[in-house]
Write a protein that binds this DNA or RNA. Structure first.
Lengths: 242, 242
DNA sequence: CGGGTGATTGATTGTCGTCAAGCTTGGTGG
DNA sequence: CCACCAAGCTTGACGACAATCAATCACCCG
């Protein structure tokens, strides 16, 4: 009855970097997201307003969530009031622990959000029965881990401007903004700061700097235009020349 | 023939935080490390001298490694010469990607090292046959992910002294130094710096600071004595009062 | 005992954090 | 429709912490 890969002290994981792709029903599910369509009937849709809390770190993990619309931040609050945003979850992404009894992060709505909650019980049942589903869970975990390790590099090695460049590129990648060059920043400056380990003022200055260097344009606070992707990549890759 | 959970673009993962426990053969294997005893006969032992490279980022991932003796650093080198150490692997730990064709990190010997290499082919075969083995892989991945996310917090939110405190505590936890209060620092100051996103000088000054505050003692460069674990915890947890 | 590597300490610089105003923007109500 | 307000963004001045640059020191090893 329990998820056979889940065991007491190990808490699987959160966060998800896949952009969602609408899937023609006729072909085999490739990603965990697509695979979840099987559970469609068990999922219940719910809505949260901006800044509402979906669940808190330490809550019993009852559901896996998929975002339909909006942005979620997965974060931790320290005793002394610091906040760390581990990840933003975007439409199509999954979040909530896959194993383990407790949520590892607090999930808060950055914007108004629509999401689907899949009961863990159903989720676990499917994962028992279907080896491909398990495989997808593994892939998913693995991708999430790579993302976390990349972030570890960003925080450990990069300057403010480099971190912002990395963030912009990854967000552009995930939202498909690489095509259009137009990027919606659904989260506020403070959220970006807490994700990149910087302050809101430093984010502002870095944005202004990139704007002055004509690497990006900033039509509105919540919109960016990528004017020089190459320059962004150089900043993000650590290809010197800074 | 291929690992059924491994698929093209997903690269499973590296790094491993478990301290190894010698296991009586009679009870069921609990951890992936113990489980690997099954593959004992396929493992081949090899040695590497201090600073030798075990494999490089991008190499074909042919083996999973278990450390018998010594310390390994899993790192990345950027084009412009920065180095980021994602993790140290200690005796009993596993490293090498579990899925995916390429290593995600370079593995270098911090000290002289003895390790056992398990061919991925054998490893994959066992994971196909044995669901509990798969379960252990999942647990392992999940633990690794949590470790990475904790590190993300350390790098994003903590000051130099706090990072050092976090590092010391985790290392003490993994090596069993919490009991004795005596901690071997097998890696050099530069390695610690590259792991914590600081410079070697800053590490030195932080060590000196903790020494002066009588939180630790430093009998030799590569040995620490924990004199005030509580103070270390307060620093690491972000319980203000800094 | 000498040479070399790595650690430590000091002096200075630079980046980012902090504090303090303004400024935009969007929403509300008169 | 406009005035007002509040939240959040931006900019500036300043300070602190960590990086950098530069000796000096301690400890292995031959």
């Amino acid at each position: 009855m329990t998820f056979n890969v889940a065991q007491k002290d190990a808490t699987f994981q959160n966060i998800v970097p896949f952009p969602f792709m609408e899937t023609p029903a006729e072909r085999a599910p490739q990603s965990l997201q697509e695979h979840l369509l099987i559970l469609r009937d068990f999922g219940s849709t719910s809505r949260f307003a901006r800044n509402e809390t979906v669940f808190q770190e330490g809550d019993r993990a009852q559901n896996i969530y998929r975002i339909v619309r909006g942005t979620i931040r997965l974060c931790r609050h320290t005793p002394d009031g610091r906040r760390h945003i581990a990840e933003f979850a975007l439409p199509g992404d999954l979040f909530g622990v896959f194993g383990g009894a407790e949520q590892a992060f607090t999930a808060e709505a950055v914007t108004d959000v629509t999401l689907i909650a899949y009961p863990r019980a159903q989720f676990d049942r499917l994962s028992e029965r279907d080896p491909r589903f398990r495989a997808n869970i593994l892939r998913h975990l693995s991708t999430t881990l790579m993302t976390a390790q990349l972030h570890t590099f960003v925080l450990g090695c990069q300057s403010a401007k480099e971190r912002l460049a990395s963030f912009i590129l990854r967000l552009a990648d995930r939202t498909g903004a690489m095509e259009t060059g137009k990027l919606d920043l659904t989260m506020g400056r403070q959220d970006i700061a807490d994700h990149l380990g910087l302050t809101i003022e430093t984010i502002c200055r870095a944005v202004t700097a990139l704007k002055n260097e004509k690497v990006i344009a900033v039509p509105t606070t919540h919109q960016l235009v990528l004017r020089n992707v190459e320059a962004l990549c150089e900043l993000a890759d650590g290809s010197a020349t800074a």
